[in-house]
Design a protein around this nucleic acid. Structure first.
Lengths: 335, 335
DNA sequence: GTTCTAAATCTAAACGTTTACATTTTGGAG
DNA sequence: CTCCAAAATGTAAACGTTTAGATTTAGAAC
C-alpha cells in the first residue's frame, strides 16, 4: 500500500533492481523482452522513480536557486520567466526566493538553498559587496549574477548597459531641445542607481549643459519615491521641462504625481523612463522609455549557468552586457 | 576537500553522528559541553546539513508544487505570492509550474512534481474534468484546487464568488441606468467563464432586461480577444452603452480597442471589469472593477494544504468561497 | 555437444541522514 | 565505595536509488 519502489518493480518483473534502473534511465544493454516485462511492471504498479533517492547518489538535484530582491518589481518576474523557460527545457526546476532587498534575508535563503543542494544559483543580490555569498563560494556551486555585479567574488555576470541607456535617454531629451532636465535617481550605492546617473551626467556634459543640483533627486527605486520627488520637482521656482526616471516603479509614481498635480505630460513636461512599464501605452501621451531585454537577460543567465553546471567548465568568468533600446513614443515633445 | 558531512563533524567533535544529528535538530538530551564542541566543529567545517539525505529518511521534502495555467496573467503571480509567503513562514519551498492552459503539459509537470516527492500540491488546473490528476490521487498527496474546481475528485477547494461578482457588476451598470449592456465572456467550458456569464444573466433577468444575442460575446480570457470583441461591439448598428469584461487581460484589450476606436470611455460607453488591473487607475476615467482578494486566495490555499500535510487531517474536503468586492471608480456613468 | 566471447544480468556498496534500541556514563543515595 | 536510575551517547538499520565489478547467460563457431 506504500509507494512502489524500484524493488517492487524488480520483483514483479523478476529481475534485479539494477536492470530496472537501466531501463528507467534508458541506458540500453537490456534484452528487448526483459525491458518489455519491466515496462509492464512499471505501468501496472504506477511506479514513479524517486528523484530524492536519485539525487542522493548522483549528488546533483537538477534544481537551481534564483534570488531576486523584489518580486513586486515586474522586471524580476520577467527575467525569471526567461530563466525558467530555459531551465525547464533542460530538465531543471527552480526555487525562486525574494529577499526584499535585505542582505540578512539573502543570507538565510542562501543557506536553505545550500541545504537543498541546488546545482547552481542565479542571483540579483541585495548587497553588491557580496560578503553574504561566502558560503556559496565555499560550496563551490556555480553562480551567475544578474543585473547587479558582485564585488567580492569573480562570478559570471550578465548586465545591461546602464550608462549607455541613461545616456541615450538624456540625449534624446536634449535633442528635443530640453535644457532643464531633471533626473530621479536610484540609490547611489547601487550599481544601477549610480550608473544611470553617470549616463545622465555624461550626456549633459557632452552637450555642454550644466548639471543643476535641484534637478538631481535620489529615490529608492520604489513607486512612492517617484511620486514624492515629482511633486518636489513641481515646487521648484524654475521647474524642469523634462524628467528622466531611473526605473519602472518610480515611473509609475511619477505618473500618479503628474496626474495629481495636473502637470500636463508631454506639454508642460516631457518624460522618459528607464525600463518599459505596462502602463506606458495607457497614459496619454504614451511614454518614451529605455527598454531592457528582460527575458533575454534571464535566458543568457541560465545558459551561462548551465555550461558551468554540466561541463564543469572552469574557464575565466564572463561579463555579458546586453544593450538597452530606446523606445520612442510620445512623451518627449520638442520644447 | 569534499562537502563536509555529519560524519566529518562527528569525528572532529569526537562523538557519534547520532549525537550530532540531535544537536542539529535541537532535540535536546545532549550535555552542554558536548553540544558546544559539536557546534564548534560545525562552525569550523562550515557544515551544512544535507536536506536531500534528510528527505530520504523522513520521506518528506518540505516542498510543495504549485501549478498555474498562465504566468502572464498577473492574477496568478499574485495568488502565488500569497501562497509563498505562508509557505516560507512554515519552512516550505515551492516549485512553481506553468501549464499554458495545456492539460498535457499539466500531466507532465505533475509527474515531475511527483518524482520530486512534493509534500502537497496547489493547482489551478488547465482541465477541470481532472483526469490528469489520477496519478496525484494515487500518490495520496494532499491537493488544494484554487480558482477552478476539479470535477473528478473531491479535493479542498478555494474559489471566489464568480456569480456574485458578475451579478454585482452588472447590477451596478443597470442601476446607473444602462439597458444595452454587453458582456465579453470567458470560455464557457470553464467555470469562471461560465459563472460570470450566469451572474450577468441573472442580474439582467432580475431587472427585467432581455439578454440580447449580439451583446454576448465569447473571448478566451486573453488580451487580444478583448480587443477584437470590443471592436466587434463597436460595429453593431445599435451599440451597447456599457461593457462588462470577464477578466483582467480582456479588460486590457478592451481599453486598447477603445483607444484605437476613439470610443470615449465613460462618456459614450461605460465599462466595468472583472478583476482589478494595474492600468485601472491610469486610464481616464479610472476603471470600476470587481476585485478579488488574490493574495488571500493563496494564503487560504496554503493553510488548507498545510493542515492536510502536517496533521494528516483526513476530514471531509472543504470548499471555501471568498467574496469579491466592487471597486467603484469612474468608468460607469449614469446613462 | 563443447567452448568461448560478448551481452545481459546481478550483487552489493555507497550516498548522508534519522531513529529505535543498546550501551555507557554520571552522580546521588546508601 | 557500591549500587542504581536517569541521562547521555553510541550502533546499526533504513530510506530508494545508481553503478562498479562479478557472475551468468546466450548463441556462434567448431
Amino acid at each position: 500500500m506504500h509507494k512502489p519502489t524500484i524493488e517492487d518493480v524488480a520483483k514483479r518483473a523478476n529481475v534485479s533492481i539494477a536492470t530496472v534502473s537501466r531501463v528507467i534511465n534508458r541506458q540500453g544493454g537490456v534484452r528487448q523482452k526483459t525491458e518489455a516485462r519491466i515496462l509492464a511492471a512499471i505501468e501496472e504498479l504506477n511506479y514513479i522513480p524517486n528523484a530524492v533517492a536519485r539525487s542522493m547518489v548522483k549528488k546533483t538535484t537538477n534544481t537551481i536557486g534564483i534570488i531576486i530582491p523584489d518580486v513586486n518589481n515586474p522586471f524580476f518576474p520577467t527575467v525569471v520567466s526567461g530563466i525558467e523557460q530555459k531551465a525547464r527545457e533542460k530538465g531543471y526546476f527552480t526555487f525562486l526566493c525574494n529577499t526584499n532587498e535585505s542582505a540578512d534575508t539573502e543570507r538565510e535563503l542562501l543557506t536553505i538553498l545550500l541545504e537543498r543542494s541546488v546545482d547552481g544559483l542565479i542571483i540579483t543580490t541585495a548587497d553588491e559587496a557580496g560578503d553574504q555569498l561566502q558560503t556559496v563560494m565555499d560550496a563551490k556551486i556555480p553562480v551567475v549574477a544578474v543585473d547587479r555585479a558582485i564585488k567580492k567574488f569573480e562570478v559570471d555576470t550578465v548586465l545591461v548597459g546602464n550608462v549607455d541607456g541613461a545616456y541615450q535617454a538624456t540625449r534624446h531629451l536634449i535633442l528635443q531641445g530640453h535644457k532643464r532636465i531633471a533626473i530621479i535617481c536610484g540609490p547611489q550605492n547601487t550599481t544601477p542607481g549610480y550608473e544611470r546617473f553617470v549616463g545622465y551626467k555624461k550626456a549633459l556634459d557632452d552637450y555642454g549643459i550644466p548639471v543643476v543640483q535641484e534637478y538631481v533627486l535620489e529615490g529608492d527605486f520604489k513607486e512612492e519615491s517617484g511620486r514624492r520627488l515629482t511633486k518636489q520637482l513641481y515646487q521648484l521656482p524654475e521647474r524642469p521641462t523634462a524628467i528622466f526616471s531611473s526605473n519602472n516603479l518610480m515611473t509609475v509614481g511619477c505618473m500618479k504625481a503628474l496626474y495629481e498635480l495636473d502637470w500636463k505630460l508631454g506639454e508642460e513636461v516631457s518624460f522618459i523612463g528607464f525600463d518599459d512599464v505596462d502602463i506606458a501605452t495607457f497614459v496619454n501621451p504614451p511614454l518614451t522609455v529605455v527598454s531592457r531585454p528582460m527575458r533575454k537577460l534571464g535566458e543568457v543567465a541560465f545558459e551561462m549557468l548551465y555550461e558551468r553546471m554540466t561541463e564543469g567548465w572552469d574557464g575565466a568568468k564572463r561579463h555579458y552586457v546586453l544593450s538597452p533600446e530606446l523606445k520612442i513614443r510620445q512623451s518627449c515633445r520638442l520644447k
